[in-house]
């Protein structure tokens, strides 16, 4: 397609055929210490979903543009699709599964249900983790702050007003 680039096919084949070595990785995931062997090109998101069956964390774009993959690393919210897992040795990861489970819901999870702050549910774990990150940051004081600081989390079902209600509700309860 691009005529300006010429590829040395033999070199490309050699590179392609090189095996990918794994690296050791220690993580605490939802309170549980894990020792893993991970290929360096694996993102935290793919590690969670494909290797650890923690599929509550969602893939919506794989480019850090939608926020569906938001998890908490040492209490801070990040896009897990933009983080290579091997760079997180020793970190504490909290995913939606670690925030709460049916029967013992986290206040944000309960508020999301109460305010009908989702429809299809696909962006929801990311919204909730992001909201907890926002609360931890402590910068959001009012509705406008919440709207601004939650704007990294897209919701195509358009539940935004209900999400803002749920986050404000949980903020008050956690304050």
């Amino acid at each position: 397609m691009n005529d300006a680039v010429t590829i040395d096919r033999a070199a490309a084949l050699r590179v392609a055929a090189s095996p990918i070595a794994t690296l050791p990785l220690s993580l605490t995931i939802n309170g549980e210490a894990r020792t893993l062997e991970v290929e360096p090109w694996t993102t935290l998101l793919d590690l969670l979903r494909d290797k650890l069956d923690l599929t509550g964390t969602k893939k919506g774009c794989d480019h850090g543009q939608c926020g569906a993959c938001t998890v908490l690393i040492d209490g801070r919210r990040i896009n897990s699709c933009l983080k290579l897992a091997v760079t997180l040795d020793g970190a504490e990861v909290t995913t939606i599964e670690g925030l709460g489970q049916p029967g013992e819901l986290h206040p944000l999870q309960a508020a999301f249900i109460e305010h009908d702050a989702f429809q299809c549910g696909y962006c929801t774990p990311g919204q909730i983790c992001s909201a907890q990150g926002l609360i931890n940051e402590g910068h959001a004081k009012d509705r406008q702050d919440v709207r601004e600081q939650m704007s990294g989390n897209l919701c195509r079902c358009g539940a935004y007003t209900n999400i803002a209600d749920a986050v404000l509700d949980a903020m008050e309860k956690q304050a």
Partner: peptide, 27 residues
């Protein structure tokens, strides 16, 4: 009535198409 599938959705238990663990899966 609050959504009956709400608890599954807010806890990450709701499984979507790419999330079913299948043995020997290829990508």
């Amino acid at each position: 009535l609050a959504r009956v599938d709400g608890a599954d959705k807010v806890t990450g238990r709701a499984k979507y198409a790419a999330e079913y663990a299948v043995p020997g899966l290829l990508y």
